[in-house]
Structure formats: C-alpha cells, structure tokens
Design a binder for these strands. Sequence first.
DNA 1: ATATACTTGACAAAAATAGTCAGCTTTGTT
DNA 2: AACAAAGCTGACTATTTTTGTCAAGTATAT
Lengths: 159, 159
Amino acid sequence: MKLSTKGKYGVRAVYEIARHFGRGPITIKEIADRQGISFSYLEQILHKLGKAGLIESVRGPAGGYLLARKPAELTIGDIVRTLEGPIALSHCLEPGEAGDCYQADDCVARMVWTKVGAKIEEALDSISFEDLLTQQQVQQKEIILKPKKKAALAGKGVC
Amino acid sequence: MKLSTKGKYGVRAVYEIARHFGRGPITIKEIADRQGISFSYLEQILHKLGKAGLIESVRGPAGGYLLARKPAELTIGDIVRTLEGPIALSHCLEPGEAGDCYQADDCVARMVWTKVGAKIEEALDSISFEDLLTQQQVQQKEIILKPKKKAALAGKGVC
DNA sequence: ATATACTTGACAAAAATAGTCAGCTTTGTT
DNA sequence: AACAAAGCTGACTATTTTTGTCAAGTATAT
Ligand code: FES
Ligand code: FES
C-alpha cells in the first residue's frame, strides 16, 4: 500500500507550479531543483500530467508549465489517478475489466475492495492544491516561532 | 495503488477459515484448493497471520488453522496490515520513522498522505469477516435466482 | 512408528519501479 | 536567418519488489 515516486513527485511538482500561480510558467529545471527530483524523470511525469489536461506547457524560451485550472479546482486525486492509474485495489476492479470477471457474482472480496477504493478516492479528491497552499502558510508561521531543529537525515525523507 | 497478492490471498484464505468457523481446523491444502492459491505460498501467508495472533494453528493429523477470534472481531484491516505492513502511503510516514524525517515540519505532503491513510484504515477496519459471511449468503440467493452466466475468462480474475 | 500437517529459511523467476539518455520539435530573441 | 531555451518523445537499463518454489525440518494424533 505505498504510493510510487511518480505519484509523490507529481504532487510535489504540481504544488510548486501552484505556488507559482499567477506568475507565468515555471520551468522543469526549477521544479526539479526545488524538490530535488531528477530533471529527466520529472519531464516524463509532467508530460503525463500535461496530456491529461491538468497542467499546460509553454514551449520555447521563457516557457515552462502552468496550472490548467485554479488551485482550488485541482485535487490530489487528479494527480494520483493520472500518474498511478485508476484507483483499483485489485486488477479485476479496473474500469473496462470489471464486467469481464467471470466470478464477479460470486466474489465476496469484490465488495471489500470497491468500498475501500471509494473511500480512498473520496479522501484524495477532498484535498485541493489551494488547501496545500494555505496549509503551507500556516506551517511557515509555526516554523518561525519554533526553534529550528535541523535534523540529521538530510535528503532522505520524501513524502 | 494496488494490493499485492499477499493481501488479497490473505483475505480470501481467512474468509475460508471463517466459513469453517465452529467446525474445527481447516487445512492449508483445503484452503489452497478452494481458492486456487499455491500451497507453498499460502503456507507463508498463513504463518505470518498466525504469528500476528489473528489465526491459530493445530499441528499433527487432523490439524489446520482456526480463527483466533470470532468472525465479527476480525477485520479486513487486521489482515492487510499484517501482510502488507502498516498503512503508510509514503515511507516517511511509517511508525518509528515518522519523527525522523528532517523536513516533517516543512512538508505539506505529509498531511495529505496521513489523512488519506487514515481514511483507508477506517474503511478497512469497518469490514469484519462476519460481514463477508452474511454478504456471501445474500449473494448465494441472488445467484440461484439469476440465470447462471458462466463467462469465458476462467481463472483470470482474482480479487 | 508413521503419516499428517504446520514451520522455517533459502532461493529464483518475473514484474514493476525508478530512473537515464539521446535526439527531436517548438518558439522567442537577436 | 541563426541561435538558444525549453519542452517532447521513445528507447533503454539498473534496481527493487513481488510472487512464488523448494527442501529440510518439527510437532502430534493414532
Ligand atoms: S518528506 Fe518526510 S514528512 Fe514529508
Ligand atoms: S475475483 Fe473478480 S470480482 Fe473478485
């Protein structure tokens, strides 16, 4: 039950784009540097998000990426579904394949994973990037108040 | 966002043990046959569940596995957590490692994955094996009423 | 004794993940 | 027109995780 780095990097990258909202396109390189993600890998991820219509790209010099919608209208669920595929805990719950399963009528597990999957979608869709932006401001203040405790494990944790 | 077969097989296996509740131990072989799971692989899975105290084993002839609690007190969450590890969408949310992350204060994603993880736990823990048993009875009746439509993909779908 | 059945650890094939790399296309600037 | 900045695209590879298999145990009812 882990997210792949694609999903996690995707959210962090779009978060950076959202932070840049209203100030023109932000380049892959800048996102990669800020978030410590490989440039080439990030290209793939952003391209996928672009094809899905969640972000827009501007080519040529001074180009980069922009949000395709307002931060409030873009959710974590959008990103995760695009990068990790549809939320289907089991293969035979994927859209298209659903009706195919020969034992769907007889399968008690089906209800379980369907129900849990719905809860996950609900949770993912309930968080927009605007939420992340406002939360970041709150955290910012808290950090200023607290004594800064720079811990050891630099570069290790990556949500 | 898929479950591994361990989690899925685990649930199906325990479901079989639950169906056998009150009728003494059921053997690995019988579970494996009924659910179409490799015997050797199932051994590993059941052993892990046994070590976690969710099921009990009886050795020797006429031995097998038993539920350690009543079906109503055993949830899908118990099984999944045991077999797939704690529900932590990101590595740095795993218990024990949590406080270690040097950027926890500054991390906007942390809140996201924590929140979603909690929802998943909630959903998983809300379903007990008794629920599965009663649901199976309902499905059984429906199947008898409906015309049996044995579809093509035999053996393919595995929730 | 012996057959049945769980226990344990080592091993291996296959699939998914996490990138890397090289070359291409678009477009603003000079 | 030429150049450089920036995204586009597909192929390729190393690593890790998953999904098992196998073999040699240990416990126990009859
Ligand atoms: S990176 Fe560790 S808490 Fe987010
Ligand atoms: S096995 Fe296909 S629906 Fe459960």
